[in-house]
Design a protein around this nucleic acid. Structure first.
Lengths: 158, 158
DNA sequence: GGCAACTTAGTTGTGCACAACTGAATTGTG
DNA sequence: CACAATTCAGTTGTGCACAACTAAGTTGCC
């Protein structure tokens, strides 16, 4: 009763497509909910980290979000232009740029407090279902990252 | 024992972040696996649909993938430049453009047959786990799409 | 002290996602 | 037939993701 090889390419059997579609659907919901805050979804993620961790160098921010400077630099510029953060060269290490919340950026947290509830409502899932799914996805990400690194290491040798 | 409101903004509690990270991790794995085929991941999805459904107008392609012409037009141009598809104005309806596989595009399917197995291996999940997760994600997407549409309808009235 | 190796942000270029728009073709209705 | 509404593909502009690279600063080792 194994699946024929020819069916392996069926779109509706590809986990990646479900994930891709779900990710984009989330993006759509956030786009609507975050419009009031004047944030895009990745910008919101950056603000979440800053609200939780306080001021951080770009490097640390990138580690929390798994994003590199190529993505963060322009994004942070836009947040700075919006008056939500300042970027200041660290005095101790001139290579490093410290991202600091402005008063306005700190204040925005109050408006953001309602966002998770509204998003959770949009999913129609209850708290336990969300937690279970989250755990599953995190396992998946760990496995995929490890596999990508292995593959990259294989390339290297070739 | 309810979660304090202040914790709702914790990054590690946000389902969206797990999903976003998982989606990007998948993208990384596909980038490596698909490099041999000369395809990006979204291009691969388009080819999957064409292999499964045969020639299709851009509109139908977009319905299968939930993508609009703004995304598909340039992507299809690149596939055409790579010699994998042709685009031809429909004779019956001159508004419509038929996307047809070339010989080369059809032939590429053989090389693609091994892709799902390699990806599945990278996840470390077995077939049942993948199926369960996929089902869950599809439910999520349906709920999120419905919520986004509702929100858009609310905007409309304001 | 001097210099190679490394670290950190930033830039450039490619590709995807999507909103808003354009222009051409078709359809529906009077 | 005429013409308004709709459909379809494509373009433009904005933003994100990421690879590859650059430039500046720091660290380690002699």
């Amino acid at each position: 009763m194994t699946t024929p090889t020819s069916d392996w390419l069926r779109l509706d059997q590809q986990i990646c497509f479900s994930l891709h579609a779900a990710s984009r659907a989330f993006n759509g919901v956030y786009r609507v909910i975050l419009k009031d805050l004047g944030l895009t979804y990745p910008q919101y993620l950056v603000m979440l980290v800053l609200w939780e961790q306080g001021d951080l160098p770009v490097k640390k921010l990138g580690e929390h979000l798994r994003l590199d400077s190529g993505t963060l630099s322009p994004l942070l510029k836009r947040l700075e232009a919006a008056g939500l953060v300042r970027r200041e060269r660290s005095a101790r290490d001139e290579r490093s740029v410290e991202v600091r919340l402005t008063e306005e950026g700190t204040a925005l947290r109050e408006s953001a407090l309602q966002v998770p509830r509204r998003v959770a409502a949009a999913t129609g899932f209850d708290v336990d279902e969300i937690r279970a799914l989250r755990t599953r996805l995190d396992e998946l990400t760990t496995a995929l990252d490890a596999a990508a690194v292995d593959a990259a290491a294989l390339e290297e040798k070739a």
